[in-house]
């Protein structure tokens, strides 16, 4: 009796182990090394970065226009109130650049609105805290998300010092114009976090991010690691600041003041 039970448990154990190994064996059978490559049309970088010229892009209206483009390209739901979802939005100086306040700020700077979005940090706290690698840093510096894997714990939202992340508290499709969706891009589902992705899907086919394209040159975009890139040229010439430098996150979004 005792032996029987023991051998049964053993057998059950082997069966369970087999189940765990099977998918991997299948993957190996599929060819081992992945038969994939980058799209030759795509544009690549070591660290994508954005420089926003706030002398040119500084009205709520102007930024809302870009946000509208962004949100319609990515099927971002429109929800009013504290459970809103947004990838790109305008806000005032003292909300945008906390800890860099100045009571006697130049009128022009004070009056401006600033375009806020995910900073695609070089040291992203959201990536550090995510328990499933649902948010990760790509080789090109973009902090992207795999919505399939997100469990909705919202640790990344607590971790982000810039308030760049939104959670789908309810069903996002209830807040989308289903007839006007971008059918080339998915929506999200309830219970996952989302944010700006620097338009990875557009870069992959050689297009610049939607907001950059729509900004009439007020947003520069390029490789921070390439000294000859457009962003490096602009950064050499103009005075720029970043949001919350003290957080040590090294944001990749710069603001020309």
């Amino acid at each position: 009796m005792k032996n029987n039970r023991r051998s049964f448990i053993k057998l059950a154990g082997i069966a369970a182990a087999g189940l765990a190994i099977a998918p991997k064996a299948m993957a190996a059978a599929m060819g081992g090394s992945a038969p994939i490559k980058e799209d030759p049309k795509g544009i690549t970088a070591k660290q994508w970065a954005m420089v926003i010229d706030t002398t040119r892009l500084n009205t709520a209206q102007g930024i809302e226009k870009l946000a509208k483009v962004c949100h319609s390209v990515h099927n971002v739901p429109f929800i009013e109130g504290k459970q809103e979802v947004k990838w790109l939005w305008p806000d005032i100086y003292e909300h945008s650049f906390t800890e860099q306040e100045n009571p006697y700020l130049a009128d022009a700077v004070k009056k401006r609105q600033y375009a806020l979005l995910c900073n695609h940090c070089q040291n992203p706290p959201c990536v550090r805290v995510c328990p499933t690698k649902a948010t990760y840093k790509r080789p090109d510096g973009i902090v992207d998300m795999d919505y399939h894997r997100c469990i909705g714990c919202r640790y990344c939202m607590a971790g982000c010092p810039y308030g760049s992340r939104s959670f789908n508290w309810g069903e996002p499709r209830d807040h989308l114009d289903l007839a006007a969706l971008n059918k080339e891009y998915p929506t999200r589902m309830r219970g996952v976090v989302e944010k700006c992705n620097f338009c990875v899907e557009r870069l992959a086919v050689g297009k610049l991010p939607a907001c950059v394209e729509a900004s009439n040159g007020a947003i520069h975009f390029g490789d921070l690691n390439d000294p000859n890139s457009e962003v490096r040229a602009v950064l050499r010439e103009r005075f720029t600041i970043r949001r919350k430098p003290s957080a040590g996150t090294e944001p990749s979004v710069y603001y020309i003041i």
């Binding site: 993957a27 992945a34 994939i36 799209d39 080789p139």
Partner: peptide, 16 residues
């Protein structure tokens, strides 16, 4: 596999 290759590796061309 397609999902991980496209999203994480940024490689979006598959050769069959």
């Amino acid at each position: 596999d397609w999902r991980d290759w496209a999203l994480r590796d940024g490689k979006r061309i598959y050769t069959n």
